[in-house]
Design a protein around this nucleic acid. Structure first.
Length: 709
RNA sequence: GGGCGGCUAGCUCAGCUGGUUAGAGCGUUGCAUUCACAUUGCAAAGGUCAUUGGUUCGAGUCCAAUGCCGCCCACCA
């Protein structure tokens, strides 16, 4: 039937078209015609399985689908592999909030039960996320969908862990970590947020010295007093010298330590250290092999060393301690306006309490070096380019990565811990029953991996490293497209782990999009109540309008203010496409595809101009400038094809038979080719119209049509 | 303390390796309408391209400095 409904209704066609594609099988590269040889692969950033799609996902899916559809039309064997991320800590936090609402707590549950519940929660979300991904029109290969907790993925993650361990790049270390007292887990340095705040700075009398501190409640165990070796004010005190002095809870013996980490211009140039609860102090203590003592427990309460204050929360204890110090005449003065930076948990905002804990660390410098090398040699192209500098800067200053988390929702760390010497022994087969160092008894490690440790291996793991056919065919991949926000969390780590395990860069291009903000340019958040659900927009304006609206003028790397008017404008465009196509279809009913026609000079030029236009768009697509390409197509279709070409040919359609045929040919030619170049951006409407067009050598779907030459 | 962006029409933003009267969408104003489309057409108004200096025959585009705005990184108690 060469007819389109009088009015365009996105809802009526969208589900139908998606089903048509799924049925065609062409999402799966193996089912593409044989001529599609050269692989083009994008591994989709695995979606967090803890909620539903947000506007950012809408952008990810749109941009990646544009690349995939374009390359498929250019004859590439395209694979777009979808995935789901268990998103360890993120998901557990979401689930814990739910538990809280129900008046339950993870700390009173059996770990196994909690794990089961979160797994069920995740599986419910999985279905939801898949349906939503389809609504965006994503042409990904569902037959290859992976989940970060799939058995084969865990196997790969374990073998990487073992390899790192054997190479001496994983160690279990008693080191200071970022501890969230609310979530009862350690975090990596990327998972804390610096917060500026103004507190009181207390100057305390410590024997002959005056020391400054913002945290008097940590000072009970302080028995080292540190100063710069070049500080002339304290030249009479010698390194290692012992001093008897009266402190909060009685007499202590302090030892003088000289260390260059001290800033002579801060306060009095002298400080005491609390190695258990401060990273700088920890380093000083390590350098001089000093004792370290825990003052605050993991729940944030003072330990018996605090004497009468034991058991108190630090917030409660602080004023009382200050009171006592004052009573003892040890409080010199208080600076009320002391502005400093504190670390907070990126999820709950709780103050991070540094703690010393045995954790699994990955030595990063040896992993970073090959990555730095590859990036410097431009083996990986960053879009936009300035991310190259950003990545290099981070990699060059990288510190060891704490990959253990004290949560149940994740991949268990396959290891045994020695009860007597505390050694950690990697034990993937779960066979080791005694410590290889001291022969002590061992217990199973209960920590899980940082979720980024598994997602950092995603490109090769999801493709079935090391021996699958897919891995051999599709790896390394061509493009990694994700949010610029997670360049360190994810992209850099994928580069490092990819190079380390597979010996290859995991992707040739990194395309980083910016944040999607609300219409006013503010970050979307549930608490602000300004979250835009992409599916509301596709519902209201159609998926195609949403998609092209998301990309036009949206430069990679910069944030996008998602204004509804923007999407509405493209709904009008979809309507324009529909009506122009309807007009052409109405006028070609008597046209036989393949008929010979004679074009006049003007028509020949029109065709030639169009070809030039296509070439330019092609160039833009090849250089990842979708934001310009989309606008160009839009402009051509509306203001050249509709406003000029159709108008010019209207009279000829009612001219001589010869003239009519020529115009029919021309209009059909440009319309069908325009639909092809529009297809990556607006796949649903273009497919629907394509299905109605009278063409010679028509393909089963527009999706596998050749890009116009 | 380091680093990275941005500053172009009322609003949101394009403008690649420097080259004729600086662009788009939305908005605004006027006119048109039984023609595929009012989810339309035609036309118009609107910009000292943050500032200053430099390179150049020529700069929104390159260089330097300055000023705002935003972001990231960093162990100053």
């Amino acid at each position: 039937m060469l007819e389109l409904a009088k009015t365009y209704n996105a809802k009526e066609i969208e589900d139908k078209i998606y089903k048509l594609w799924e049925k065609s099988g062409f999402f799966n590269p193996n089912k593409l015609p044989r001529t599609y040889k050269k692989p083009f692969t994008i591994i989709m950033p695995p979606t967090n399985a803890n909620g539903s799609l947000h506007a950012g996902h809408g952008l990810v899916l749109t941009i990646e689908d544009i690349m995939i559809r374009y390359k498929r039309m250019r004859g590439y064997k395209t694979l777009w592999l979808p995935g789901l991320d268990h998103a360890g800590f993120e998901t557990q936090v979401v689930y814990e909030r739910q538990l809280e609402k129900e008046g339950r707590s993870r700390f009173t549950m059996k770990p196994g039960d909690l794990y089961q519940e979160i797994m069920e929660f995740t599986m419910r979300n999985k279905k939801n996320i898949e349906d939503q991904t389809k609504k965006i029109g994503s042409s990904c290969d569902w037959s290859r969908e992976k989940f970060t907790l799939d058995a084969d993925i865990i196997k790969t993650v374990y073998s990487t862990f073992k390899k790192l361990y054997n190479d001496g790049l994983v160690y279990r270390g008693r080191r200071i970590v970022h501890w969230c007292p609310k979530h009862q887990t350690s975090l990596s340095d990327l998972e804390t947020i610096d917060k500026k705040q103004t507190d009181k700075l207390y100057y305390l009398q410590y024997g002959p010295f005056t020391i400054a501190t913002a945290r008097p409640e940590t000072k009970f165990g302080d028995k080292y007093v540190v100063m710069h070796p070049d500080d002339k004010r304290y030249k009479d005190y010698k390194h290692g010298q012992k001093i008897e002095l009266e402190w909060i809870n009685g007499k202590v013996t302090a030892t003088v330590i000289k260390d260059k980490a001290i800033d002579m211009s801060f306060g009095t140039g002298v400080m005491t250290i609390t190695p258990w609860h401060d990273a700088v102090d920890f380093d000083i203590a390590e350098r001089h092999s000093l004792d370290k003592e825990q003052i605050i427990d993991f729940q944030g309460r003072l330990l018996p060393i605090a004497g009468e204050f034991a058991g108190m929360k630090i917030g409660e204890a602080r004023p009382k301690i200050v009171e006592k110090l004052q009573a003892k005449g040890l409080l010199v003065k208080i600076d009320e306006n002391y502005t400093h930076v504190v670390k907070t948990c990126y999820k709950c905002g709780a103050l991070i309490e540094p703690q010393i804990k045995d954790q699994w660390f990955v030595k990063m410098k040896p992993l970073a070096e090959p990555a730095i090398e590859a990036i410097k040699k431009n083996k990986i192209r960053f879009i936009p380019a300035h991310y190259k500098k950003i990545s290099l800067h981070w990699l060059q200053n990288i510190i060891d990565w704490n990959i253990s988390r004290q949560i149940v929702w994740g991949i268990p760390i396959p290891a045994k811990i020695c009860d007597s010497c505390g050694a950690g022994i990697v034990d993937i087969e779960n066979k080791i029953s005694a410590c290889h160092k001291c022969n002590g008894s061992v217990r199973k490690e209960t920590d899980t991996f940082d979720t980024w440790f598994s997602s950092g291996q995603w490109p090769f793991a999801a493709l079935g490293y090391p021996s699958s056919k897919d891995y051999k065919t599709f790896y390394p991949t061509q493009v990694m497209e994700t949010a610029g926000e997670i360049i360190f969390f994810w992209v850099c780590r994928m580069i490092m782990l990819g190079l380390y395990v597979s010996k290859k860069i995991p992707f040739e291009n990194v395309y980083l999009h910016g944040l999607v903000l609300d219409a006013k340019g503010q970050k979307m958040s549930k608490s602000r109540g300004n979250v835009i659900n992409p599916l509301d927009l596709t519902e209201k304006y159609g998926t195609d309008a949403f998609r092209i609206g998301m990309v036009v003028g949206n430069t990679p790397g910069t944030s996008l203010a998602l204004n509804e008017d923007r999407i509405r404008g493209y709904k009008n465009f979809a309507n324009k496409i529909w009506n122009a196509s309807r007009f052409v279809l109405m006028n070609v009913k008597d046209y036989k595809p393949g008929t010979r026609v004679v074009l006049n000079q003007k028509q020949k030029k029109t065709l030639a101009d169009f070809k030039k236009e296509v070439k330019e768009i092609e160039k833009l697509m090849d250089s990842f400038k979708f934001y310009i390409a989309a606008e160009k197509i839009y402009h051509y279709f509306w203001h050249t094809f509709c406003d000029n070409i159709i108008e010019e040919n209207k009279t000829k359609l009612s001219g001589t038979a010869k003239e009519r045929r020529a115009s029919q040919y021309l209009l059909l030619e440009i319309l069908s080719s325009s639909l092809k170049i529009l297809h990556p951006f607006m796949p649903l409407i273009t497919e629907e119209i394509y299905q109605q067009l009278p063409l010679k050598n028509k393909k089963k779907t527009l999706m596998i049509e050749q890009w116009p030459q």
